Computed example of a mutant assay.
Amino acid sequence: MPQPQTSSPGQGQRFDWWAAPAAASQPGRPAPPPPPVHTPAARSAHADAVPPQPVAPAPAAAAAPVAPVLPVTVLPDAAPAVVDSSTEVYRAVQASEAFQAIKLGYRAFVFPVSGAFLGWYLLYVAAQAAAPGVMRSQVAGPVNVAWLLGLLQFASTFLLTWLYARNARTKRDRAALELRWDTQDALR
């Protein structure tokens, strides 16, 4: 029994024929073309019976909003400086003690934990390369040391994800949200 041939849509056929019923339900849209036919004889008969549909040009992209032009103050013997109040607000936030405390709390957790996890992973890889006999030793039934350490990699990943979420929720999220509210108030 011959297998039906499949092909990609030809010229004039749409690539999204499977989404045509949803598109047809929208008012003002033309009816979608029929789905492509997969046998050579039916394809040529279909091509003779249905003229190719013209492809509509894509709608023009909405124009991006134009940023307001800010006044420029020219100082003698200096480069022109642009006065921007939002830049000053963000610089003040970055220099604030609250932001520095949030950043320090983040780094105090992430850097040591990332280093410990990377060391744990590299220890596993080095043990595979340096001591294959130890890694092949059976622990329980078909489970050997390599399988056990590999499964512990997954367990430690989930544990570290939970610890990070708990650390962020208890130590940094409230302070970061308050700093965000203060920043938004300063920008108004």
Rank of each mutant, 00 (worst) to 15 (best):
A126R: 04
L118Y: 07
P132H: 10
T170E: 08
P132L: 08
V139K: 05
L151W: 01
V139Y: 02
Y121I: 13
W162F: 15
T161P: 06
G150L: 11
A127T: 04
L148E: 02
R169Y: 01
A165S: 05
G133C: 11
A140H: 12
V134D: 06
V125R: 06
R136H: 10
N144D: 15
A129T: 04
L160G: 03
Y124G: 01
A146S: 09
A129C: 03
F117S: 06
P142M: 07
Q138M: 14
L151I: 10
L159P: 03
G141R: 11
Q138L: 15
K171L: 11
Q128T: 09
K171Y: 12
R169G: 01
L160T: 02
T170C: 04
L160Q: 09
S156H: 12
Y121A: 15
L160F: 13
A131D: 04
W120K: 05
F117W: 06
R169C: 00
V143I: 15
V143M: 10
T161W: 01
N144T: 11
L123C: 12
M135V: 02
F117G: 01
A155T: 03
L122M: 05
Q153L: 15
L163N: 00
N167V: 07
P142D: 06
R136S: 15
F117V: 08
G119P: 07
A127R: 07
F117M: 15
A140E: 07
P132I: 04
W120N: 04
V139G: 02
A168T: 10
Q138P: 02
Q128D: 06
A165V: 03
T157W: 10
L152I: 02
Y121G: 09
L149C: 06
G150R: 11
L118I: 08
F154Y: 14
G119L: 09
L118S: 04
V139E: 05
M135S: 02
G141W: 13
L159E: 05
R166W: 09
L160R: 04
A165W: 00
N167E: 09
T157E: 10
A146I: 04
A140T: 11
G119H: 10
W162C: 08
Y121E: 12
V139T: 00
F154A: 08
L160E: 01
V139H: 01
A129I: 08
G133N: 12
L159F: 09
